[in-house]
Amino acid sequence: MSATLFGLLGAALVGIGLFGMLVGTQPLMRIVCFNLLGSGVFLVFGAVARRGGGAGFAADPVPQAVILTGLVVAFAATTLAVALVLRLAGNEDEDRH
């Protein structure tokens, strides 16, 4: 039950994040939306993990481990994007001076 509900929440977050990323105008805003999208993807994965419980485990540990790895990689991607945005803004300062 939880699995289905949060799986559907994940699907909704994917749509919301994607929309925000595509129509956003400020780079930082689009990065936030990318993170929303990512959280939706991980939730779908989490729902899959929860459904796969058994053999004494409440949830399938393999997708859970995969989600952990994915979260860290997605965070690294966010930092790279933020660094680019900051550099771009800094460059404009230099142009102005």
């Binding site: 799986g7 699907a11 749509g15 796969g52 053999a55 393999v62 997708p63």
Partner: peptide, 25 residues
């Protein structure tokens, strides 16, 4: 995309295939 994805989540096979038993073993 959300609707298709939601439908896909609902249509996932039951019982869910997975590796829980393999990990436990």
């Amino acid at each position: 995309i959300t609707v298709a994805l939601g439908y896909a989540v609902l249509a996932l096979p039951k019982p869910a295939p997975g590796l829980a038993a393999e990990v436990a073993a």
